[in-house]
Design a protein around this nucleic acid. Structure first.
Lengths: 154, 154
DNA sequence: CATAAATAGATCGTACACAAATTAATCGTA
DNA sequence: TACGATTAATTTGTGTACGATCTATTTATG
């Protein structure tokens, strides 16, 4: 007597064999690895991504930032208010178009950049793969993301 | 005359060139693609992952489920209570060890499995890559996840 | 067998993440 | 130029996520 009839009608793959779960769990692993490193800077991982974007270029609008990070303003507004409260960024309305909010790094915000470079090195070491290999994997993942996004829009 | 002095002291890569961001944004893209499909089942994406795990095998503890999905009880308890309230799972203390909570699918929980198979097909189509290619990428991502996790533990 | 240590869940506080609704400013077109 | 449509950001409500803490139960050790 078998303990259970193997599996009901439509067979669903094991969660560990699903691509979406690989991505989901890898995302968790990155977040967990970043957490103790970012704690020293009093930044969360999404806040860090925002800071990286602003270190690249200052004076962007919330909309532009959201376009880069694929985040909506309802996520960014409270996050940016926390960064403002922490003294890392300023949020000012664009005088040319009062609908827009311009984001600028403060002196303290710029100063964090140095520590962030160390963190990037830590993460590189943790992944432990050469740049060539990482770029190839990154290209694959970006390809999948773009495919998913093009379906979303259709 | 260059428009800006290239970059301040330590150079941080563009966010779009960071592996962690690829994973982060791909995760978003999956969530966004799943959302309208799962809305029909009144499930969120993390709830769906829990259901997939339970469709694979019933009667697990919260601990076991968390081990598979890399989630802890403070995330799973409220999520499972919502699934219970939706009539999809039951949560009962293990009489053999009252510390544990056993998770079982209800008839309604089992019934959803059929719809889920359709969703899996939709996602496959969205990715639009053959199984061979997907498996290779999945292996790469899982490898990175495992590397990150082994560093976390050390 | 009594009590300390370990374990499994649950609770609480903080911070994303997003849909839907709201407010304010700008644009398009008659 | 008036005014409806569009746009940018904010607010609100729901649902993850997780660290820290707490409770209840089981296990280990004297």
């Amino acid at each position: 007597m078998t303990p259970a009839p193997a599996s009901q009608p439509p067979s669903i793959p094991d969660v560990s064999e699903m691509l979406c779960f690989s991505v989901y769990s890898a995302e968790h692993a990155f977040t967990q690895l970043y957490r103790p490193l970012l704690d020293k800077l009093k930044l969360t991982y999404p806040q860090y991504l925002v800071m990286v974007t602003l270190w690249g270029r200052d004076g962007r609008t919330v909309k532009e930032l959201g376009g880069i990070l694929f985040l909506d303003s309802s996520t960014l507004t409270p996050l940016l208010k926390r960064l403002e409260a922490a003294g890392l960024v300023t949020r000012t309305r664009n005088p040319k178009d009062e609908r827009e909010v311009l984001l600028h790094l403060t002196k303290e915000g710029h100063a964090l950049r140095g520590h962030a470079a160390e963190i990037a090195r830590c993460i590189q070491d943790a992944v432990g793969l050469d740049g060539e290999t990482i770029n190839a994997i990154r290209a694959s993942i970006d390809d999948i993301r773009d495919r998913l996004q093009s379906v979303e829009r259709s």
